[in-house]
């Protein structure tokens, strides 16, 4: 479904106006610096469920927002 993101500055806008930004979380038990770099560059948490992510409103206010979204059904809990 076309996702509608409630931008706090511009109101509800279609996802095509935004650029996705993942918040990379490198696991703490990964201690080798090289392995941490690889993890940060390539590995994804890819959760199925509620997750916090960043979106850049490229075709709107050009500000970053933080979105809380359930990736299972695209339900949006909060945007700020």
């Amino acid at each position: 479904m076309s996702l509608i993101i409630p931008c706090p500055h511009c109101g509800a806008r279609p996802v095509q106006e935004f650029v996705y930004g993942e918040i990379p979380v490198v696991p703490d038990d990964l201690t080798d610096p090289d392995a941490r770099d690889v993890d940060r560059a390539f590995m994804r948490a890819n959760p199925e469920g509620p997750t916090v992510e960043r979106w850049f409103h490229a075709y709107g206010c050009r500000r970053w927002l933080t979105l809380e979204r359930d990736t299972h059904n695209d339900e949006i809990f909060s945007a700020e």
Partner: peptide, 15 residues
């Protein structure tokens, strides 16, 4: 592909 990571099987009109 859709721009958002998601497991949702819902289709949309925009596409």
């Amino acid at each position: 592909i859709d721009p958002q990571p998601s497991y949702s099987y819902r289709s949309g009109h925009h596409f």
